[in-house]
Structures are given as C-alpha cells and as structure tokens.
Write a protein that binds this DNA or RNA. Structure first.
Length: 332
DNA sequence: GTTCTGCGTTGTATCCTTAT
DNA sequence: ATAAGGATACAACGCAGAAC
C-alpha cells in the first residue's frame, strides 16, 4: 500500500476511551515491562500451542507485547478502560486461550502490526499480565487484508459496535476502497452503508457523547443526528444526543424529535386506532385511515366485493380528473 | 449516494383466564 | 385473593426497495 494512511484519529479521541489506531511506529510505546520472573510467560501452556511451532502451515510464536503496533486500519475504535481491565483479569485467571494475529510491520523490522487481539495486547501492557503473547504471524496479508481479518474475527465474536464498524469503513474509504465494495464485503445494503457513513459527518462534540454510549447510538441514530446537524447545527444536535442518552429514549423517539425539529409544522397529533386479526387477514384503523388485507375464498369473493363496494360508497371520494375517474379494477 | 416508505420480526404492556 | 400463564395489541426495530 503506497498511499499515505488516513488520519482519522481526530474522530476517535476521548478521555474515557482509549484510541485504537493513532500512531504508526509508536514513539510512545512503554519500555519493557518489569515482571516477576517466576511467573510463567503463558500460564496455561496446555491451552495453546507451544512457542515457535508450525501448525498446519500456521506460524505460531511468542511475541513481546511491546513489539506489537496498532493497525492503522483497525476495525475497532471503542476500547474502554473497563474492557481492558476485564480482559486482563480473564488472562490472569484463564491464561491465553487463542493466539493473537499479527503481520510483520513493513516499516519497522522486528516489529509487528496487530490484526486481531489488540485488547489482549493492551491488557498485558497496562495491567502487566504477560510480557509475551502467543501470536500467529500472517506473512501473506496486506495491511488492508489484515484489517479485514480483524474485522471478521470481531464480527464473529459480536465485539463490534456500529461506531467501530463505521470508523473502519471510513478508514478503508480513505485508503482507497469504494463504499460499494465495502458494503458488498460487509454484507450491507447501500442504505445501511449510507447510515454508517453518517458517523463521519458528525462533529467531535457529538462523537464524544456516542463514545460514552456506544451501544445506544447505532447507525440509524447517527444518520438522524447527522441530518439534524446538517440542517439545524451543532447546539441542537448535541442537546438532542444528550437527552436521548441520558433519558434512555427509544430510536423512534429520536427519529420523531429530529423530524419535529426539522419540520416543526408537520407534527401530527397521534391518533388512536385499533387492529383486528383474523385467521385469513388483518383489519387496521389509524385515525382517518383504514387498511384491510384479507383472503376471500372463490365462492365468497363476489358477495364480499359487492358488500365492500356498497360500504365504500359511504366514504370513498371519486378521483379529480375524468381520466382518473374511468372505471378501474383495483385488486383488493 | 441520499432519503423516504413500508414490511416482517421482535419485544413489551395489558388484559383475561385458570390454578392455587 | 392472588399468582401464573396465555392471548392479544401495539410499539419498536432493522432492513430492503424505490424514488429521487
């Protein structure tokens, strides 16, 4: 990849959340961790392959955690201190179950770039669990492919929030991939891709709120907020985002609020209604609107249609033009 | 690529019936 | 009387397709 890597760290910084990607080459990597030498490097060696092995073509080796750099195209953004602390605790209690995945760092010989397992690396560094982790080294993956590898691993473990996904997609787009290609590979409709891209249009103040409640602000919410930000400005957007999160409102509420703020005159009084379900259909009434979907047997069809048409005489209004008024048989 | 609309599914509140 | 379970209605959600 010859293109300069995208600089997206501005989208991703927060006091409460550890940024995943920002530096490449890592001038601020902490020095070697002073560790009790009596502690085994990997406490549960029976759960992992031994160091320096080749397992079905896989290159497994132990790697010093301070030699592992973040992936500039990291598929995940949101790492809270709690997540890292919990992972450190898991590693202490259970050891390392699965190897992390890395590629050789193309710009720093002897160093590696993480594909999958960055939480474990951070847990080891910050909470001094292990000096080294068992790693599978992928020499055949490009930076972009390694990021997709991590993305797929995280998706499999349901570890992504929508903000993670959106920021990953933005990085890939900045690195030259098209939105359509990403949507295809991530199995997203172009509608959803459009919603995910809304995160990138939000101002930092709103992203700060989202990072504090990553599960609360999905792509649909991001899209609504981006629309509000575009039309009504930052103050209204921040205020609404805060209210949405602090009052734990529903997605529908947020959509309605945005709609009301953008079209203050378009508010409609909510009308009461009813729904009756039958074995062969459903009848709904909402205010002045009636909806009927029903299956009628062949022998009853004519009588039903006649009765319904007589009923329609009460309320149905003829179309405005003579052309429209031509008799048409509309399927019921 | 963006936005709107509608559909199918899921979750939840409420009411009713039954068992204890 | 009341707790438990079932049925029903409706809100909420996620998403795709169509229109722009």
């Amino acid at each position: 990849m010859s293109k300069p890597l995208p600089k997206l760290s501005g989208l991703i910084k927060s006091g409460a959340v550890v940024p995943a990607t920002p530096m490449y080459g890592l001038p601020d990597i902490p020095g070697p961790v002073a560790r009790d030498e009596t502690t085994p490097l990997i406490e549960t060696q029976d759960k992992v392959a031994p160091p320096e092995t080749s397992n079905g073509g896989r290159k497994l080796t132990t790697v010093n955690v301070n030699l592992i750099d973040p992936n500039p195209l990291a598929p995940r953004e949101v790492y809270t201190p709690e997540m890292i602390r919990d992972r450190a605790e898991d590693l202490r209690v259970q050891g390392q179950h699965d190897p992390i995945h890395v590629i050789p760092n193309p710009s720093a010989a002897g160093r590696f770039i993480i594909c999958d397992g960055w939480t474990r690396v951070q847990a080891c560094r910050e909470h001094k669990v292990f000096d080294t982790l068992l790693a599978e080294i992928h020499t055949d993956l490009s930076m972009q492919e390694s990021a997709w590898f991590g993305y797929e691993q995280n998706e499999g473990r349901s570890q992504h929030c929508d903000l993670d996904r959106a920021m990953f997609y933005e990085k890939l787009i900045a690195a030259g991939e098209t939105a359509a290609e990403i949507a295809r590979r991530a199995k997203l409709s172009k509608t959803m891709m459009s919603f995910y891209r809304a995160y990138g249009k939000l101002p930092e103040d709103v992203l700060e709120i989202i990072r504090l409640h990553p599960g609360k602000f999905g792509a649909t919410e991001a899209y609504q907020l981006a629309k509000l930000y575009d039309k009504a400005g930052i103050r209204k957007t921040v205020s609404l985002a805060n209210k949405y999160a602090s009052e734990d409102q529903t997605q529908r509420w947020l959509t309605n609020q945005v709609q009301a703020l953008l079209n203050p005159n378009a508010q409609k009084a909510k009308t009461a209604g009813k729904t009756i379900r039958y074995a062969n259909g459903v009848y709904k009434q909402r205010g002045d609107s009636f909806e009927l979907v029903i299956t009628v047997s062949a022998e009853q069809r004519e009588a039903f249609a006649q009765g319904l048409e007589e009923l329609l005489e009460i309320a149905a209004i003829a179309p405005a033009t003579a052309e429209d008024a031509d008799e048409k048989h509309v399927e019921l």
